[in-house]
Amino acid sequence: MSFPGSPLEKTKPRRLVSLCLGVLGKHFEDITADLSEIAANFPADIKMAMLAIARRRKLLNDEVLISLAESSWEILDISGSDVSDSGLAKVAEICQSLQAVDISRCSKVTPLGVSELVHHCRSLEILRYGGCPRSDYTARRCLGILKPELNNAEGESWEELDTVEIAKGAQSLRWLVWPKIDEDSQESLATECPRIIVNPKPSPFGFRGVEVPREALPDIALDDLIVKDINPKTWAAVCGITPRPVVPSILSPTELPMAERFRLAFVERDTRLAPKRAKNARQHQRRAERDWVMTSTDAKSIVLASQVSRSLHSRS
């Protein structure tokens, strides 16, 4: 019997696609120039995994984000990246089904970018920002963007209002994660945006009687689940993260991990086929030269001239 975290616990081998994403992620900076062409036919979940890797490798900017953006995305985590208002506005136009967005520690995002996000993404329920002085400053200036404006609304409470009566503002926003919110901003939101719950905490009974979504918990990254099967070494060298040790399998103490066996098998096959590929290349080159000689008049002239020259030299 083995217990979680014990050396005898059997680990599930990573999927082949996760191994490939790990290799691709380690060399991400080499493909950024052609990323839009490379990722054009990738599925939406693969693009999101590449985005998560780029963010962790500190390579996420406007160009990378726009190259990977997919209209079916419902979450977007660009926290701590170099994405600016331009990139955020463009991806908001493309990904209008976004429900949870993390722009915390994005020093290049201003209220203009947040305004575009709120305007295009009408299903946005969770917003995470702040986390650094510049982002906190932006968050304070965004209060007016989140506050609703009413069109002759009638009713005694916010709960009685229909969404069509809310002219502007973050109509569907319900959860706001802003770790270092100041008292004035918190009081303003509580008074003018009572539908928005700020910095909810996990509880077995929910928050104010409402179950808190996983994406609204501040200690959980939005894209953690997306890269859970990818080796942390993919970005550890850049971010200074200490990867979790690989737990050996209980099958055999000397058995190699699946990823290493896969790599060695590929290297062995490549080495075994190398002479055959070289031979085929030489045969192809000779065949091409022979075909050229048989079909080209100039080549025939050169061959005949060479033969005549050798004949004259031999007679002399």
Rank of each mutant, 00 (worst) to 15 (best):
Q283F: 14
G144A: 05
L124P: 01
A221F: 12
V101T: 03
L225W: 11
S301L: 11
C142E: 03
I46N: 02
T163F: 09
E63T: 10
S252T: 02
E165S: 12
K26F: 06
N199S: 05
E289I: 13
S296Q: 02
S249T: 15
L21I: 04
L76F: 10
P4N: 12
V210M: 13
F262Y: 04
S36A: 14
M258W: 09
R263E: 11
P248I: 01
L124C: 00
E149Q: 12
L16K: 11
L8M: 13
I226Y: 13
R287H: 08
L146T: 00
W292L: 15
M294W: 02
K201C: 06
K201M: 12
A40H: 09
C106D: 03
A216S: 06
T138E: 00
V212K: 05
E215Q: 15
L117F: 11
I181K: 00
A89Q: 06
M50F: 06
V227Y: 07
D182V: 12
R261K: 14
R57D: 00
V164T: 12
E154H: 13
P245H: 05
V109F: 09
Q96K: 09
I226G: 05
S2D: 06
T295F: 07
P253L: 03
Q96Y: 11
E192F: 15
Y129I: 12
L60C: 07
R208E: 15
M48I: 08
F266E: 08
T234N: 03
R55F: 06
L312A: 08
A89G: 13
L124W: 01
E154N: 10
T32M: 04
D184W: 13
I38N: 01
L68C: 03
G5N: 06
S115Y: 06
P275A: 00
R282W: 10
